[in-house]
Nucleic acid binder design. Sequence first.
DNA 1: AACCAATGGTTCAAATAATGAACCAGATGC
DNA 2: GCATCTGGTTCATTATTTGAACCATTGGTT
Lengths: 259, 259
Amino acid sequence: MGTVSKALNLLGYFNHGRLEIGLSDLTRLSGMNKATVYRLMTELQAVGFVEQVDGARSYRLGPQVLRLAALREASVPILSASRRVLRELSEETGETTHLSLLQGDQLASLSHAYAPQHATKVMMEDAEVLTFHGTASGLAVLGFADDSFVAAILDGPLEARTPQTQTDPAAIRRLIDAARRTGMAQSVGGFEAEVHSHAVPIFGPDRAVLGALAVAAPSSRMTDTQKQAIPRALRAAGLALTQRIGGVCPPDFPPMPLP
Amino acid sequence: MGTVSKALNLLGYFNHGRLEIGLSDLTRLSGMNKATVYRLMTELQAVGFVEQVDGARSYRLGPQVLRLAALREASVPILSASRRVLRELSEETGETTHLSLLQGDQLASLSHAYAPQHATKVMMEDAEVLTFHGTASGLAVLGFADDSFVAAILDGPLEARTPQTQTDPAAIRRLIDAARRTGMAQSVGGFEAEVHSHAVPIFGPDRAVLGALAVAAPSSRMTDTQKQAIPRALRAAGLALTQRIGGVCPPDFPPMPLP
DNA sequence: AACCAATGGTTCAAATAATGAACCAGATGC
DNA sequence: GCATCTGGTTCATTATTTGAACCATTGGTT
Protein backbone atom coordinates (compact mmCIF):
# COMPACT_ATOMS: atom_id res chain seq x y z
CA MET A 1 0.00 0.00 0.00
CA GLY A 2 1.45 3.31 -1.07
CA THR A 3 1.64 6.52 0.88
CA VAL A 4 -1.36 8.04 -0.83
CA SER A 5 -3.61 5.16 0.15
CA LYS A 6 -2.39 5.35 3.72
CA ALA A 7 -3.19 9.04 3.90
CA LEU A 8 -6.63 8.68 2.36
CA ASN A 9 -7.46 5.67 4.50
CA LEU A 10 -7.00 7.96 7.48
CA LEU A 11 -10.01 9.89 6.20
CA GLY A 12 -12.00 6.68 6.51
CA TYR A 13 -11.91 6.93 10.29
CA PHE A 14 -14.17 9.95 10.23
CA ASN A 15 -17.85 9.19 10.67
CA HIS A 16 -20.93 10.64 12.30
CA GLY A 17 -19.89 9.55 15.75
CA ARG A 18 -16.35 10.85 15.21
CA LEU A 19 -16.44 14.05 13.25
CA GLU A 20 -13.24 15.29 14.84
CA ILE A 21 -10.21 13.13 15.62
CA GLY A 22 -7.06 14.01 17.49
CA LEU A 23 -3.58 12.89 16.52
CA SER A 24 -3.30 10.27 19.26
CA ASP A 25 -6.70 8.75 18.50
CA LEU A 26 -5.90 8.60 14.82
CA THR A 27 -2.58 6.93 15.62
CA ARG A 28 -4.35 4.28 17.68
CA LEU A 29 -7.13 3.76 15.16
CA SER A 30 -4.80 3.38 12.22
CA GLY A 31 -2.06 1.46 14.01
CA MET A 32 0.54 3.60 12.25
CA ASN A 33 3.38 5.51 13.77
CA LYS A 34 2.50 8.84 15.31
CA ALA A 35 5.07 10.74 13.31
CA THR A 36 3.73 9.18 10.13
CA VAL A 37 0.16 10.07 10.96
CA TYR A 38 1.22 13.58 11.85
CA ARG A 39 3.04 14.09 8.59
CA LEU A 40 0.20 12.65 6.53
CA MET A 41 -2.39 14.79 8.28
CA THR A 42 -0.23 17.86 7.85
CA GLU A 43 -0.09 17.15 4.16
CA LEU A 44 -3.83 16.51 3.92
CA GLN A 45 -4.31 19.78 5.70
CA ALA A 46 -2.11 21.63 3.24
CA VAL A 47 -4.37 20.57 0.38
CA GLY A 48 -7.57 21.35 2.30
CA PHE A 49 -8.85 17.82 2.80
CA VAL A 50 -8.77 18.23 6.55
CA GLU A 51 -8.47 21.24 8.80
CA GLN A 52 -7.66 21.82 12.43
CA VAL A 53 -10.53 23.07 14.45
CA ASP A 54 -8.93 26.25 15.74
CA GLY A 55 -5.26 26.92 15.64
CA ALA A 56 -4.28 23.58 17.09
CA ARG A 57 -6.02 20.43 18.31
CA SER A 58 -8.05 17.80 16.54
CA TYR A 59 -8.69 17.40 12.84
CA ARG A 60 -11.94 17.43 10.88
CA LEU A 61 -12.72 17.11 7.19
CA GLY A 62 -11.81 20.17 5.16
CA PRO A 63 -13.65 22.32 2.64
CA GLN A 64 -11.93 20.86 -0.41
CA VAL A 65 -14.12 17.77 -0.35
CA LEU A 66 -17.18 19.91 -1.09
CA ARG A 67 -15.77 21.05 -4.39
CA LEU A 68 -14.89 17.51 -5.43
CA ALA A 69 -18.32 16.25 -4.47
CA ALA A 70 -19.98 18.95 -6.55
CA LEU A 71 -17.86 17.92 -9.54
CA ARG A 72 -18.63 14.27 -8.97
CA GLU A 73 -22.30 15.17 -9.07
CA ALA A 74 -21.66 17.02 -12.32
CA SER A 75 -20.11 13.82 -13.73
CA VAL A 76 -22.62 11.39 -12.31
CA PRO A 77 -25.65 13.26 -11.01
CA ILE A 78 -27.04 10.34 -9.08
CA LEU A 79 -27.76 12.20 -5.85
CA SER A 80 -29.60 15.01 -7.55
CA ALA A 81 -31.55 12.50 -9.65
CA SER A 82 -32.44 10.62 -6.50
CA ARG A 83 -33.94 13.51 -4.58
CA ARG A 84 -37.22 13.68 -6.45
CA VAL A 85 -37.54 9.90 -6.52
CA LEU A 86 -36.92 9.72 -2.77
CA ARG A 87 -39.39 12.49 -2.00
CA GLU A 88 -42.15 10.96 -4.09
CA LEU A 89 -41.53 7.50 -2.71
CA SER A 90 -41.69 8.88 0.84
CA GLU A 91 -44.96 10.61 0.11
CA GLU A 92 -46.43 7.53 -1.51
CA THR A 93 -45.41 5.08 1.19
CA GLY A 94 -45.64 7.42 4.16
CA GLU A 95 -42.25 6.21 5.38
CA THR A 96 -38.59 7.22 5.40
CA THR A 97 -36.69 6.43 2.20
CA HIS A 98 -32.97 6.50 1.47
CA LEU A 99 -30.40 5.86 -1.23
CA SER A 100 -27.15 4.07 -0.52
CA LEU A 101 -24.23 3.83 -2.91
CA LEU A 102 -21.32 1.44 -3.24
CA GLN A 103 -18.00 3.11 -2.51
CA GLY A 104 -15.40 0.50 -3.17
CA ASP A 105 -16.17 -2.23 -0.66
CA GLN A 106 -18.40 -0.05 1.49
CA LEU A 107 -22.06 0.82 1.20
CA ALA A 108 -22.90 4.32 2.43
CA SER A 109 -26.33 5.88 2.80
CA LEU A 110 -26.02 9.22 1.04
CA SER A 111 -29.43 10.79 0.54
CA HIS A 112 -32.78 10.40 2.27
CA ALA A 113 -36.30 11.78 2.53
CA TYR A 114 -38.84 11.75 5.31
CA ALA A 115 -42.58 11.43 4.99
CA PRO A 116 -44.64 14.19 6.57
CA GLN A 117 -47.47 11.88 7.63
CA HIS A 118 -46.31 10.36 10.87
CA ALA A 119 -45.02 11.67 14.17
CA THR A 120 -42.70 8.68 14.50
CA LYS A 121 -40.37 7.84 11.65
CA VAL A 122 -37.09 6.10 11.03
CA MET A 123 -34.34 8.71 11.23
CA MET A 124 -31.42 8.67 8.80
CA GLU A 125 -28.04 10.32 8.64
CA ASP A 126 -26.21 10.81 5.39
CA ALA A 127 -22.80 9.17 5.02
CA GLU A 128 -23.62 6.34 7.41
CA VAL A 129 -21.86 3.12 6.40
CA LEU A 130 -24.25 0.16 6.21
CA THR A 131 -23.51 -3.49 6.76
CA PHE A 132 -24.12 -5.73 3.76
CA HIS A 133 -25.52 -8.68 5.67
CA GLY A 134 -27.75 -6.77 8.10
CA THR A 135 -29.58 -4.30 5.87
CA ALA A 136 -32.10 -4.65 3.09
CA SER A 137 -29.98 -2.32 0.97
CA GLY A 138 -26.88 -4.44 1.50
CA LEU A 139 -28.68 -7.66 0.59
CA ALA A 140 -30.22 -6.05 -2.49
CA VAL A 141 -26.75 -4.99 -3.65
CA LEU A 142 -25.20 -8.38 -2.95
CA GLY A 143 -27.97 -10.03 -4.95
CA PHE A 144 -26.51 -8.41 -8.06
CA ALA A 145 -22.82 -8.06 -7.19
CA ASP A 146 -19.90 -10.14 -8.42
CA ASP A 147 -19.66 -13.60 -6.93
CA SER A 148 -16.17 -12.83 -5.65
CA PHE A 149 -17.45 -9.74 -3.86
CA VAL A 150 -20.28 -11.69 -2.25
CA ALA A 151 -17.82 -14.38 -1.22
CA ALA A 152 -15.53 -11.80 0.37
CA ILE A 153 -18.40 -10.38 2.42
CA LEU A 154 -19.63 -13.80 3.56
CA ASP A 155 -16.07 -14.76 4.39
CA GLY A 156 -15.37 -11.64 6.45
CA PRO A 157 -16.55 -11.02 9.99
CA LEU A 158 -20.34 -10.71 10.15
CA GLU A 159 -21.08 -8.44 13.05
CA ALA A 160 -24.45 -8.50 14.82
CA ARG A 161 -25.66 -4.93 15.22
CA THR A 162 -28.85 -6.11 16.95
CA PRO A 163 -30.00 -9.42 18.44
CA GLN A 164 -32.04 -9.86 15.25
CA THR A 165 -29.03 -9.58 12.90
CA GLN A 166 -28.55 -12.73 10.85
CA THR A 167 -24.87 -13.74 11.00
CA ASP A 168 -24.95 -17.29 9.62
CA PRO A 169 -23.25 -17.24 6.19
CA ALA A 170 -25.48 -19.99 4.80
CA ALA A 171 -28.65 -18.17 5.86
CA ILE A 172 -27.36 -14.89 4.44
CA ARG A 173 -26.53 -16.66 1.20
CA ARG A 174 -30.17 -17.74 0.99
CA LEU A 175 -31.31 -14.15 1.57
CA ILE A 176 -29.00 -12.97 -1.22
CA ASP A 177 -30.33 -15.63 -3.59
CA ALA A 178 -33.87 -14.55 -2.74
CA ALA A 179 -32.93 -10.94 -3.48
CA ARG A 180 -31.58 -11.92 -6.88
CA ARG A 181 -34.67 -13.96 -7.72
CA THR A 182 -37.22 -11.39 -6.59
CA GLY A 183 -35.27 -8.19 -7.28
CA MET A 184 -35.92 -7.01 -3.74
CA ALA A 185 -34.55 -7.59 -0.25
CA GLN A 186 -35.94 -7.20 3.24
CA SER A 187 -34.47 -6.81 6.69
CA VAL A 188 -36.39 -6.81 9.95
CA GLY A 189 -34.34 -5.22 12.71
CA GLY A 190 -31.02 -6.34 11.26
CA PHE A 191 -29.39 -2.92 11.58
CA GLU A 192 -31.63 -0.99 13.96
CA ALA A 193 -34.13 -2.73 16.21
CA GLU A 194 -37.80 -2.30 15.33
CA VAL A 195 -37.05 -1.18 11.79
CA HIS A 196 -38.46 -3.12 8.86
CA SER A 197 -36.78 -2.21 5.56
CA HIS A 198 -37.31 -3.10 1.92
CA ALA A 199 -34.70 -2.33 -0.74
CA VAL A 200 -34.18 -2.65 -4.50
CA PRO A 201 -30.87 -2.40 -6.38
CA ILE A 202 -29.94 0.51 -8.66
CA PHE A 203 -27.92 -0.14 -11.81
CA GLY A 204 -25.47 1.90 -13.87
CA PRO A 205 -25.02 2.17 -17.65
CA ASP A 206 -22.79 -0.91 -17.64
CA ARG A 207 -25.50 -2.96 -15.87
CA ALA A 208 -23.40 -3.08 -12.71
CA VAL A 209 -25.12 -2.51 -9.40
CA LEU A 210 -24.39 0.97 -7.98
CA GLY A 211 -26.36 0.90 -4.77
CA ALA A 212 -29.85 0.49 -3.42
CA LEU A 213 -33.04 2.41 -2.85
CA ALA A 214 -34.80 1.56 0.41
CA VAL A 215 -37.93 2.20 2.44
CA ALA A 216 -37.51 1.97 6.21
CA ALA A 217 -40.54 1.78 8.47
CA PRO A 218 -41.13 1.04 12.14
CA SER A 219 -42.00 -2.67 12.42
CA SER A 220 -45.24 -1.75 14.17
CA ARG A 221 -46.52 0.01 11.07
CA MET A 222 -45.74 -2.85 8.70
CA THR A 223 -49.34 -4.00 8.23
CA ASP A 224 -50.51 -6.37 5.54
CA THR A 225 -51.59 -3.39 3.48
CA GLN A 226 -48.14 -1.83 3.71
CA LYS A 227 -46.43 -5.13 2.99
CA GLN A 228 -48.16 -5.01 -0.38
CA ALA A 229 -47.98 -1.29 -1.09
CA ILE A 230 -44.33 -0.66 -0.21
CA PRO A 231 -42.77 -3.32 -2.48
CA ARG A 232 -44.94 -2.17 -5.38
CA ALA A 233 -44.03 1.51 -5.01
CA LEU A 234 -40.38 0.72 -4.27
CA ARG A 235 -39.93 -1.45 -7.31
CA ALA A 236 -41.34 1.24 -9.59
CA ALA A 237 -39.19 3.91 -7.95
CA GLY A 238 -36.06 1.81 -8.32
CA LEU A 239 -36.66 1.26 -12.01
CA ALA A 240 -37.36 4.97 -12.44
CA LEU A 241 -34.11 5.96 -10.73
CA THR A 242 -32.03 3.46 -12.69
CA GLN A 243 -33.57 4.87 -15.84
CA ARG A 244 -33.02 8.51 -14.86
CA ILE A 245 -29.29 7.99 -14.42
CA GLY A 246 -29.00 6.21 -17.73
CA GLY A 247 -28.69 2.82 -16.09
CA VAL A 248 -29.70 -0.54 -17.49
CA CYS A 249 -30.97 -3.51 -15.50
CA PRO A 250 -29.08 -6.80 -15.99
CA PRO A 251 -30.83 -9.40 -18.16
CA ASP A 252 -31.80 -11.60 -15.23
CA PHE A 253 -33.43 -8.79 -13.28
CA PRO A 254 -37.06 -9.78 -12.66
CA PRO A 255 -39.44 -7.49 -14.55
CA MET A 256 -42.25 -5.55 -12.91
CA PRO A 257 -45.15 -7.89 -12.19
CA LEU A 258 -48.30 -6.83 -13.98
CA PRO A 259 -50.70 -4.96 -11.70
CA MET B 1 5.85 18.67 -1.62
CA GLY B 2 5.09 15.13 -0.56
CA THR B 3 3.56 12.34 -2.55
CA VAL B 4 0.14 12.81 -1.00
CA SER B 5 -0.02 16.45 -2.06
CA LYS B 6 1.07 15.52 -5.57
CA ALA B 7 -1.70 12.95 -5.82
CA LEU B 8 -4.39 15.24 -4.47
CA ASN B 9 -3.24 18.13 -6.61
CA LEU B 10 -4.03 15.92 -9.58
CA LEU B 11 -7.65 16.09 -8.51
CA GLY B 12 -7.43 19.85 -8.88
CA TYR B 13 -7.32 19.51 -12.65
CA PHE B 14 -10.90 18.31 -12.74
CA ASN B 15 -13.46 21.04 -13.35
CA HIS B 16 -16.73 21.57 -15.14
CA GLY B 17 -15.08 21.80 -18.51
CA ARG B 18 -12.95 18.73 -17.82
CA LEU B 19 -14.96 16.17 -15.91
CA GLU B 20 -12.96 13.32 -17.35
CA ILE B 21 -9.21 13.33 -17.95
CA GLY B 22 -7.02 10.76 -19.66
CA LEU B 23 -3.58 9.72 -18.49
CA SER B 24 -1.74 11.64 -21.19
CA ASP B 25 -3.68 14.85 -20.58
CA LEU B 26 -3.11 14.59 -16.88
CA THR B 27 0.60 14.05 -17.49
CA ARG B 28 0.77 17.18 -19.61
CA LEU B 29 -1.35 19.26 -17.24
CA SER B 30 0.66 18.31 -14.19
CA GLY B 31 4.08 18.28 -15.81
CA MET B 32 4.91 15.10 -13.93
CA ASN B 33 6.24 11.86 -15.32
CA LYS B 34 3.68 9.60 -16.94
CA ALA B 35 4.61 6.61 -14.79
CA THR B 36 4.23 8.74 -11.68
CA VAL B 37 0.83 10.02 -12.72
CA TYR B 38 -0.28 6.53 -13.58
CA ARG B 39 0.76 5.14 -10.24
CA LEU B 40 -0.86 7.99 -8.32
CA MET B 41 -4.12 7.67 -10.23
CA THR B 42 -4.13 3.92 -9.72
CA GLU B 43 -3.79 4.51 -6.02
CA LEU B 44 -6.50 7.16 -5.98
CA GLN B 45 -8.68 4.72 -7.83
CA ALA B 46 -8.04 2.00 -5.27
CA VAL B 47 -9.43 4.19 -2.53
CA GLY B 48 -12.41 5.36 -4.61
CA PHE B 49 -11.42 8.97 -5.13
CA VAL B 50 -11.40 8.51 -8.89
CA GLU B 51 -12.76 5.82 -11.16
CA GLN B 52 -12.25 4.83 -14.75
CA VAL B 53 -15.21 5.41 -16.93
CA ASP B 54 -15.67 1.88 -18.20
CA GLY B 55 -13.09 -0.82 -17.94
CA ALA B 56 -10.25 1.33 -19.20
CA ARG B 57 -9.82 4.88 -20.51
CA SER B 58 -10.06 8.25 -18.81
CA TYR B 59 -10.54 9.03 -15.14
CA ARG B 60 -13.32 10.90 -13.37
CA LEU B 61 -13.96 11.67 -9.71
CA GLY B 62 -15.07 8.69 -7.66
CA PRO B 63 -17.94 8.01 -5.30
CA GLN B 64 -15.85 8.28 -2.16
CA VAL B 65 -15.86 12.07 -2.28
CA LEU B 66 -19.62 12.06 -1.73
CA ARG B 67 -19.30 10.37 1.61
CA LEU B 68 -16.61 12.78 2.76
CA ALA B 69 -18.64 15.77 1.65
CA ALA B 70 -21.66 14.53 3.60
CA LEU B 71 -19.47 14.19 6.70
CA ARG B 72 -17.98 17.62 6.16
CA GLU B 73 -21.51 18.99 6.08
CA ALA B 74 -22.22 17.16 9.32
CA SER B 75 -19.18 18.91 10.85
CA VAL B 76 -19.76 22.33 9.35
CA PRO B 77 -23.24 22.51 7.89
CA ILE B 78 -22.59 25.66 5.94
CA LEU B 79 -24.11 24.51 2.65
CA SER B 80 -27.31 23.30 4.23
CA ALA B 81 -27.53 26.51 6.26
CA SER B 82 -27.02 28.51 3.10
CA ARG B 83 -29.85 26.99 1.08
CA ARG B 84 -32.71 28.75 2.83
CA VAL B 85 -30.77 32.02 2.93
CA LEU B 86 -30.00 31.77 -0.80
CA ARG B 87 -33.58 30.92 -1.69
CA GLU B 88 -35.06 33.78 0.30
CA LEU B 89 -32.49 36.22 -1.02
CA SER B 90 -33.26 35.15 -4.59
CA GLU B 91 -36.95 35.62 -4.03
CA GLU B 92 -36.43 39.00 -2.42
CA THR B 93 -34.08 40.38 -5.06
CA GLY B 94 -35.52 38.55 -8.06
CA GLU B 95 -32.00 37.57 -9.12
CA THR B 96 -29.57 34.66 -9.00
CA THR B 97 -27.71 34.25 -5.72
CA HIS B 98 -24.74 32.06 -4.82
CA LEU B 99 -22.40 31.15 -2.01
CA SER B 100 -18.68 30.73 -2.56
CA LEU B 101 -16.26 29.27 -0.04
CA LEU B 102 -12.52 29.56 0.46
CA GLN B 103 -10.73 26.28 -0.15
CA GLY B 104 -7.12 26.92 0.65
CA ASP B 105 -6.09 29.55 -1.85
CA GLN B 106 -9.06 29.04 -4.13
CA LEU B 107 -12.56 30.43 -4.02
CA ALA B 108 -15.23 28.04 -5.31
CA SER B 109 -18.89 28.73 -5.85
CA LEU B 110 -20.65 25.84 -4.13
CA SER B 111 -24.36 26.55 -3.79
CA HIS B 112 -26.80 28.75 -5.67
CA ALA B 113 -30.45 29.65 -6.09
CA TYR B 114 -32.39 31.09 -8.99
CA ALA B 115 -35.27 33.50 -8.81
CA PRO B 116 -38.49 32.41 -10.50
CA GLN B 117 -39.42 35.92 -11.66
CA HIS B 118 -37.46 36.44 -14.84
CA ALA B 119 -37.03 34.57 -18.06
CA THR B 120 -33.41 35.69 -18.26
CA LYS B 121 -31.13 35.07 -15.32
CA VAL B 122 -27.48 34.60 -14.56
CA MET B 123 -26.72 30.89 -14.67
CA MET B 124 -24.41 29.28 -12.14
CA GLU B 125 -22.59 25.99 -11.84
CA ASP B 126 -21.53 24.58 -8.51
CA ALA B 127 -17.82 23.97 -7.96
CA GLU B 128 -16.75 26.71 -10.35
CA VAL B 129 -13.51 28.35 -9.23
CA LEU B 130 -13.78 32.14 -9.11
CA THR B 131 -11.03 34.69 -9.59
CA PHE B 132 -10.39 36.92 -6.59
CA HIS B 133 -9.73 40.10 -8.55
CA GLY B 134 -12.54 39.79 -11.08
CA THR B 135 -15.56 38.86 -8.95
CA ALA B 136 -17.54 40.66 -6.28
CA SER B 137 -17.23 37.55 -4.09
CA GLY B 138 -13.46 37.49 -4.46
CA LEU B 139 -13.11 41.17 -3.60
CA ALA B 140 -15.43 40.80 -0.59
CA VAL B 141 -13.26 37.93 0.69
CA LEU B 142 -10.01 39.80 0.09
CA GLY B 143 -11.38 42.77 2.00
CA PHE B 144 -11.26 40.66 5.16
CA ALA B 145 -8.42 38.24 4.42
CA ASP B 146 -4.87 38.27 5.79
CA ASP B 147 -2.61 40.95 4.36
CA SER B 148 -0.17 38.29 3.22
CA PHE B 149 -2.92 36.48 1.34
CA VAL B 150 -4.04 39.68 -0.38
CA ALA B 151 -0.44 40.46 -1.27
CA ALA B 152 0.01 37.00 -2.78
CA ILE B 153 -3.07 37.45 -4.96
CA LEU B 154 -2.05 40.92 -6.13
CA ASP B 155 1.44 39.65 -6.79
CA GLY B 156 0.31 36.68 -8.85
CA PRO B 157 -0.88 36.76 -12.44
CA LEU B 158 -4.14 38.71 -12.77
CA GLU B 159 -5.93 37.23 -15.73
CA ALA B 160 -8.57 39.20 -17.65
CA ARG B 161 -11.61 36.97 -18.13
CA THR B 162 -13.47 39.74 -19.97
CA PRO B 163 -12.44 43.09 -21.48
CA GLN B 164 -13.97 44.67 -18.36
CA THR B 165 -11.77 42.75 -15.89
CA GLN B 166 -9.64 45.07 -13.80
CA THR B 167 -6.06 43.80 -13.79
CA ASP B 168 -4.14 46.76 -12.37
CA PRO B 169 -2.91 45.79 -8.87
CA ALA B 170 -3.22 49.34 -7.55
CA ALA B 171 -6.81 49.66 -8.76
CA ILE B 172 -7.69 46.26 -7.32
CA ARG B 173 -6.13 47.27 -4.02
CA ARG B 174 -8.50 50.26 -3.96
CA LEU B 175 -11.48 47.96 -4.61
CA ILE B 176 -10.38 45.71 -1.74
CA ASP B 177 -10.03 48.69 0.59
CA ALA B 178 -13.50 49.83 -0.40
CA ALA B 179 -14.84 46.35 0.33
CA ARG B 180 -13.31 46.43 3.79
CA ARG B 181 -14.69 49.90 4.53
CA THR B 182 -18.21 49.25 3.27
CA GLY B 183 -18.50 45.50 4.01
CA MET B 184 -19.58 44.87 0.43
CA ALA B 185 -17.99 44.51 -2.99
CA GLN B 186 -19.21 44.93 -6.56
CA SER B 187 -18.10 43.72 -9.94
CA VAL B 188 -19.49 44.76 -13.29
CA GLY B 189 -18.62 42.27 -15.97
CA GLY B 190 -15.33 41.27 -14.37
CA PHE B 191 -15.97 37.53 -14.68
CA GLU B 192 -18.82 37.21 -17.16
CA ALA B 193 -19.76 40.03 -19.50
CA GLU B 194 -23.03 41.81 -18.79
CA VAL B 195 -23.22 40.51 -15.21
CA HIS B 196 -23.38 42.96 -12.31
CA SER B 197 -22.67 41.30 -8.96
CA HIS B 198 -22.73 42.38 -5.34
CA ALA B 199 -21.16 40.30 -2.57
CA VAL B 200 -20.70 40.32 1.20
CA PRO B 201 -18.23 38.24 3.23
CA ILE B 202 -19.24 35.37 5.50
CA PHE B 203 -17.34 34.79 8.74
CA GLY B 204 -16.61 31.74 10.88
CA PRO B 205 -16.57 31.31 14.65
CA ASP B 206 -12.97 32.54 14.80
CA ARG B 207 -13.92 35.75 12.95
CA ALA B 208 -12.00 34.60 9.87
CA VAL B 209 -13.60 35.06 6.48
CA LEU B 210 -14.95 31.78 5.06
CA GLY B 211 -16.38 32.93 1.75
CA ALA B 212 -18.94 35.25 0.27
CA LEU B 213 -22.62 35.50 -0.46
CA ALA B 214 -23.42 37.17 -3.77
CA VAL B 215 -26.27 38.42 -5.95
CA ALA B 216 -25.63 38.30 -9.70
CA ALA B 217 -27.91 40.19 -12.09
CA PRO B 218 -27.81 41.07 -15.77
CA SER B 219 -26.38 44.57 -16.04
CA SER B 220 -29.46 45.67 -17.92
CA ARG B 221 -31.68 45.02 -14.91
CA MET B 222 -29.48 46.93 -12.47
CA THR B 223 -31.76 49.94 -12.12
CA ASP B 224 -31.45 52.61 -9.45
CA THR B 225 -34.14 50.83 -7.46
CA GLN B 226 -32.23 47.55 -7.59
CA LYS B 227 -28.96 49.29 -6.75
CA GLN B 228 -30.56 50.23 -3.46
CA ALA B 229 -32.60 47.12 -2.80
CA ILE B 230 -29.95 44.48 -3.52
CA PRO B 231 -27.25 45.76 -1.17
CA ARG B 232 -29.80 46.13 1.62
CA ALA B 233 -31.16 42.60 1.25
CA LEU B 234 -27.71 41.13 0.67
CA ARG B 235 -26.20 42.69 3.75
CA ALA B 236 -29.00 41.35 5.93
CA ALA B 237 -28.73 37.91 4.36
CA GLY B 238 -24.96 37.82 4.89
CA LEU B 239 -25.29 38.66 8.56
CA ALA B 240 -28.03 36.06 8.92
CA LEU B 241 -25.89 33.34 7.34
CA THR B 242 -22.83 34.22 9.41
CA GLN B 243 -25.02 33.99 12.48
CA ARG B 244 -26.64 30.70 11.48
CA ILE B 245 -23.29 28.96 11.19
CA GLY B 246 -22.15 30.31 14.54
CA GLY B 247 -19.87 32.87 12.95
CA VAL B 248 -18.81 36.22 14.35
CA CYS B 249 -18.04 39.34 12.34
CA PRO B 250 -14.63 40.94 12.94
CA PRO B 251 -14.63 44.11 15.08
CA ASP B 252 -14.04 46.41 12.12
CA PHE B 253 -16.91 45.01 10.07
CA PRO B 254 -19.26 47.91 9.31
CA PRO B 255 -22.60 47.45 11.08
CA MET B 256 -25.94 47.45 9.30
CA PRO B 257 -26.97 51.00 8.49
CA LEU B 258 -30.23 51.93 10.19
CA PRO B 259 -33.19 51.80 7.82
C1' DA C 1 3.65 21.04 44.80
C1' DA C 2 5.46 17.20 43.04
C1' DC C 3 4.14 13.48 40.15
C1' DC C 4 2.11 10.88 36.36
C1' DA C 5 0.06 10.19 32.10
C1' DA C 6 -1.84 12.12 28.62
C1' DT C 7 -1.58 15.31 24.59
C1' DG C 8 0.46 17.49 19.95
C1' DG C 9 4.65 18.03 17.82
C1' DT C 10 9.79 17.16 16.29
C1' DT C 11 14.30 14.79 15.16
C1' DC C 12 17.43 11.85 12.28
C1' DA C 13 19.69 7.48 10.71
C1' DA C 14 17.86 3.45 8.48
C1' DA C 15 14.61 1.35 5.50
C1' DT C 16 11.52 1.74 1.98
C1' DA C 17 8.92 3.63 -1.55
C1' DA C 18 8.82 6.99 -5.43
C1' DT C 19 10.85 8.31 -9.66
C1' DG C 20 11.71 8.61 -14.75
C1' DA C 21 13.82 7.07 -19.11
C1' DA C 22 12.91 3.60 -21.94
C1' DC C 23 9.95 0.14 -23.66
C1' DC C 24 5.33 -2.53 -25.01
C1' DA C 25 1.20 -3.14 -27.47
C1' DG C 26 -2.93 -1.52 -29.32
C1' DA C 27 -5.67 2.18 -31.74
C1' DT C 28 -6.12 5.87 -34.90
C1' DG C 29 -4.84 8.63 -38.72
C1' DC C 30 -2.57 9.41 -43.13
C1' DG D 1 2.47 0.58 -44.18
C1' DC D 2 4.44 4.15 -41.66
C1' DA D 3 3.92 7.56 -37.92
C1' DT D 4 1.97 8.94 -33.84
C1' DC D 5 -1.01 8.84 -30.61
C1' DT D 6 -2.90 6.23 -26.47
C1' DG D 7 -2.77 3.57 -21.68
C1' DG D 8 0.21 0.72 -19.33
C1' DT D 9 4.79 -1.44 -17.52
C1' DT D 10 9.75 -2.18 -16.10
C1' DC D 11 13.78 -1.48 -13.05
C1' DA D 12 18.07 0.66 -11.38
C1' DT D 13 18.74 5.06 -9.18
C1' DT D 14 17.28 8.36 -5.99
C1' DA D 15 14.72 10.67 -2.67
C1' DT D 16 11.15 10.14 0.58
C1' DT D 17 9.00 7.84 4.23
C1' DT D 18 9.44 5.61 8.48
C1' DG D 19 9.68 4.91 13.59
C1' DA D 20 11.99 4.97 18.13
C1' DA D 21 13.07 8.32 21.01
C1' DC D 22 12.66 12.90 22.63
C1' DC D 23 10.35 17.76 23.83
C1' DA D 24 7.08 20.86 25.78
C1' DT D 25 2.32 21.49 27.54
C1' DT D 26 -1.69 20.32 29.70
C1' DG D 27 -4.81 18.19 33.07
C1' DG D 28 -5.63 15.17 36.65
C1' DT D 29 -4.07 12.70 41.28
C1' DT D 30 -1.96 12.11 45.36
